[in-house]
Amino acid sequence: MGSVPHAFLRFDALGKTYDEVHAVRDVSLDIARGEFVALVGASGSGKSTLLKCINRLVEPSSGRVLLDGQDVLDGPPAPLRRRIGYVFQGIGLFPHMRVAENITLTARLEGERLPDKRIAELLELVELDPAMAKRLPAELSGGQRQRVGVARALAGDSHLLLMDEPFGALDPITRGQLGERVRRLHDELDLTTVMVTHDMAEALLLATRVLVMDAGRIVADETPAALLAGEGGDIAQALVDVPRAQARQLAGIGK
């Protein structure tokens, strides 16, 4: 790897409390440009809250988030969010807008228009037929909808992509395909990606770096290889054991 990547995204003693409950406690870490970071943990471990502190859907109670050296709390939230691609757990396509309108929405918020060619290009990026631009979200399958959701997140030319359980609602085949596609886009478009997931297998397959959260703290920060080699501590290993055990069982059936 050689040169040390500079901190593109930095959490500095970040904390968030809801009515005395600590959702995120004292998180400090750096994410470099080009990393694909998976945030893994059980429900309520604070991973979504941590992600949302980046684009201020959640306002931190203490500490700071620095994006490219700038505190995200400087200035109003709307322009910040437009610079950050965001893929929602619930997909969040607007049902009253056609696919093309959903994709160009971020540009429209800035008072710009995306040419049709760019819309077609974005649809092709997520392996959708450009003819789908004219459809309403209700006319698409779940997988197609989330592909549009990814295209929308990429439309703003942002270099930071945040994904909150992006493939949670999809069937396993679509889920695998779209995950791989996103990983390739991450490489091709030179993105920095932070993905929240509760599925350790998905994290291990897609990410370059896996952060394990428990009760608001980061309890493990390892590469997939290191985790598979048994690093990261008990909580992380308990999560890794799930797909490992499944793989063993599957191998046993195959014999």
């Binding site: 684009n55 859907l57 939230p77 709307a78 322009p79 910040l80 969010r81 437009r82 610079r83 950050i84 965001y86 929602f88 757990q89 619930g90 997909i91 969040g92 396509l93 607007f94 049902p95 929405l105 971020t106 918020l109 929308r152």
Partner: peptide
């Protein structure tokens, strides 16, 4: 979710 999406897109 749609309201969060609207916020998240930077409206």
């Amino acid at each position: 979710e749609l309201i969060e999406a609207a916020d998240g897109l930077g409206m």
